[in-house]
Amino acid sequence: MGERIRGGGKVGQRVSGLAVALGMVLFLGGFVWGAVVYRPYTVPTPSMTPTIDVGDRVLAHRVDGGDVRRGDVVVFNDKSWVSNAPVVKRVVAVGGDTVACCTHGKLTVNGKQIDEPYLAAGTPAEIMNFPKVTVPKGRLFLLGDERQGSLDSTAHLTDAARGTVDESAVTARVDAVVWPMKGMLARPTGFEPLGALSEPGPLRSVVTVIVAGAVLVLAGGAYGPIAKRASRRSRPAARTEPAGVR
């Protein structure tokens, strides 16, 4: 019986070791995966309030500018806007679209009024009223969610590109605000009738892999102390004989 207990203990130790090893692979692999596909940014201005407040830390999925869709919040670099600094804005129109503001207080894209629930409550889109713009192929028209003070495409309408930005300037698409922990950005369904929205990046999968790895490491590491305690409880008490009995 004692041999079986010892054998079972060895098997348990092996399983525990495998759990810890696999957990470390998943835990570290998840962080490496995240570092490869995501970039962290700190947003320095309130131009994307209330979606992203000044000082918020975001994770942005590295994407090609050609994969950007209406409603995406993107990170881009355009030296005609800000030299050598990334900018975060929302794409409201892509190449071939006609965008204008406003009709009944709403932004219009290709003649359709767009519901924008990400704007601050009671904020009419018309506070950034601008004339109709047709976006050239391969370019994007971008606005801040804080329409009154955002230096976005409307601030560059007199430029040769009419405020549009080349798709190649986009480096990433924001998936989530991680500090403070606001979570994944809501899907901009107001743009859905105009075409397919972007699918979010693999952030949830990355987090799942990291959490699963941590659980395996903790469970495997806890096996030894738990097994020892269980072994002590299962040992029969030592017999004692009355004095003088042989």
Rank of each mutant, 00 (worst) to 15 (best):
Gly2Val: 13
Gly8Met: 14
Gly9Cys: 05
Val11Ile: 11
Leu18Glu: 02
Ala19Pro: 10
Val20His: 01
Met24Trp: 14
Met24Glu: 10
Gly29Leu: 13
Val32Thr: 01
Val36Asp: 14
Arg39Asn: 13
Arg39Met: 03
Thr42Phe: 06
Val43Thr: 02
Ser47Gln: 14
Met48Leu: 11
Thr49Val: 00
Pro50Gly: 01
Val54Ser: 13
Asp56Arg: 00
Val58Gln: 02
Val58Tyr: 04
Gly65Leu: 03
Gly65Trp: 00
Arg69Gly: 03
Val74Phe: 03
Asn77Asp: 08
Asp78Leu: 06
Ser80Thr: 14
Trp81Ala: 13
Asn84Ser: 13
Val88Pro: 04
Lys89Glu: 07
Lys89Asn: 06
Arg90Asn: 04
Val94Lys: 03
Gly96Thr: 11
Gly96Tyr: 11
Asp97Asn: 08
Asp97Gln: 05
Cys102Ser: 10
Thr103Ser: 15
Lys106Met: 15
Thr108Met: 12
Asn110Trp: 09
Gln113Cys: 13
Gln113Leu: 15
Glu116Val: 05
Pro117Gln: 09
Ala120Leu: 12
Ala120Trp: 07
Ala121His: 13
Pro124Phe: 04
Ala125Ser: 14
Ile127His: 09
Ile127Phe: 08
Met128Leu: 11
Val133Pro: 02
Arg139Met: 07
Leu143Arg: 01
Glu146Arg: 11
Leu157Phe: 05
Asp159Ser: 14
Ala160Trp: 04
Arg162Met: 14
Gly163Tyr: 10
Thr164Ile: 08
Ala169Gln: 07
Val170Gly: 00
Arg173Gly: 05
Met181Gly: 03
Leu185Glu: 04
Pro188Phe: 01
Pro188Ile: 02
Gly190Val: 06
Gly195Val: 12
Leu197Lys: 08
Ser198Gln: 07
Glu199Asp: 13
Pro202Thr: 09
Arg204His: 14
Ser205Tyr: 11
Val206Glu: 15
Val206Cys: 14
Val206Tyr: 12
Val207Ile: 14
Val207Phe: 14
Val207Ser: 01
Val209Phe: 02
Val215Ile: 15
Val215Met: 05
Ala222His: 01
Ile226Phe: 13
Ala227Leu: 01
Arg232Ser: 04
Arg233His: 07
Arg233Thr: 00
Ser234Leu: 14
Pro242Leu: 15
Ala243Lys: 04
Gly244Gln: 08
Val245His: 10
Arg246Gln: 13
